[in-house]
Design a protein around this nucleic acid. Structure first.
Lengths: 225, 225
DNA sequence: TCAAAAGTGTTTCGAGTACACCCATGG
DNA sequence: CCATGGGTGTACTCGAAACACTTTTGA
């Protein structure tokens, strides 16, 4: 912990990157920014930035989510730290990556003149990403899928009230396979995580669905698959 | 990624810590060092050190395992990054923690004059640890348990040849509950991960047990529980 | 009355769990 | 011949998976 093998001092910068997912238009999408400055001009990447000297990395991630994506109160957890010495051409920067999940209704994308563009891009058709972000994206997707199977995090991708079909849709889109409706309902209801909102979805031109809420909007371990 | 919110430059050091587990004398044990220098004099901690400017953190972890514990060719994976601003009294240091697993037969502990002591300590009776290492220990144990349940990592805690009872013992000690012998054997053999070594353990004063080998000594996902 | 999604039960199959006795060896 | 751990099979239970039709609403 306290002894350095280097003879000179350490010159390494520490950043965070935020991988923000949402389900939107039938696809799992990640928030990406398109950069302006050389040498990464026009390339897409996850939002990120250096951490402050007295800031915990999770705080830094929340700050970046707020300033670069206008998002607050999201589910957030540390994903992994990426530290290949050559991952950034401009110098040694290690990045602590965070996984964030939001219901897409809660996000109002901020366009800023710092970036060429900001967009929700489908995980099935990602552009080439800057740095090692393609690898980061892969790790984030793997983490999301496994958390979906053994925790209740789906709450973080939905508004407080939702129908069972909407919830099932989250699972189908992320896990990328269809699920039997009857089995899904039996299972999710038997877990006891949901409470009826005693309301129905209205304004739809078919039979209105019952609305549900998660009893707890915080992480709980379960066994969904 | 490229814009710093700080006005002055970043002053954060980057270290790695290695949590090395082994099963030994019927207990799960971690390798700890007892420090000499103030302000951490006499306190126990996991081995660690700053990373070099051109060194990936995983390499740094391997270097530390080799120099501080005399261990090579171990299973190693990134655990998490710990970065509370006050975790080290001496200044801001973030630590990328690695989880390592070794068969205890492979380790010859090195005593060095850099530390007061180096020892395998039971996870059930850990002393107070320096820094935030108590929290690190908790995260490492949780990771180990879950990996044991859905991967074949048990290979990394055993020599190449072992008996089924020895393998079962690894599971019982780490998961901290007894397992039915017949069910365990049925399950582990049905996974097809093992091959008979066509040999028997000899020199024991009871019926000699058949020796097995893992077909692959590298990580594979399974479902053990 | 049509289109669209909501809602609902039963059967089958396989995996997990509980459980007790004989076997091979060394001392 | 005794002590010690090695090695083996069956029955039960429960959850996972497959599968199709009726209901409610708005247009």
């Amino acid at each position: 912990m306290f002894s350095s093998p280097s003879h000179d001092t350490q010159h390494i910068k520490v950043a965070v990157d935020a991988i923000i997912f949402t389900v939107f238009k039938g696809e799992l999408r990640a928030l990406l920014i398109q950069m302006k400055k050389a040498p990464y001009e026009k390339q897409w990447a996850f939002p990120g930035g250096l951490i402050d000297n007295n800031e915990a990395s999770e705080e830094a991630a929340r700050r970046i989510l707020k300033t670069q994506a206008g998002v607050e109160d999201v589910f957030l957890e540390q994903l992994a730290t990426f530290d290949e010495p050559k991952r950034d051409i401009l110098g040694r920067v290690i990045s602590i990556a965070y996984l964030a999940l939001v219901p897409h209704e809660h996000v109002q994308l901020k366009t800023t003149d710092r970036y060429m563009d900001v967009a929700w891009q489908s995980m099935k058709r990602l552009p080439k990403l800057a740095y090692d972000h393609t690898q980061v994206a892969k790790a984030a997707l793997a983490r999301l899928r496994s958390k979906l199977e053994y925790t209740n995090i789906a709450w973080s991708l939905l508004p407080t009230e939702f129908t069972l079909t909407e919830l099932q849709h989250i699972y189908e889109v992320i896990l990328d396979h269809p699920i039997d409706k009857r089995n899904f309902r039996k299972k999710i209801l038997s877990l006891g995580l949901l409470a009826s909102a005693k309301k129905k979805r209205k304004g739809v031109s078919h039979r209105p669905a019952e609305l549900f809420r998660f009893k707890e909007r915080k992480p709980v371990n379960i066994q969904m698959l």
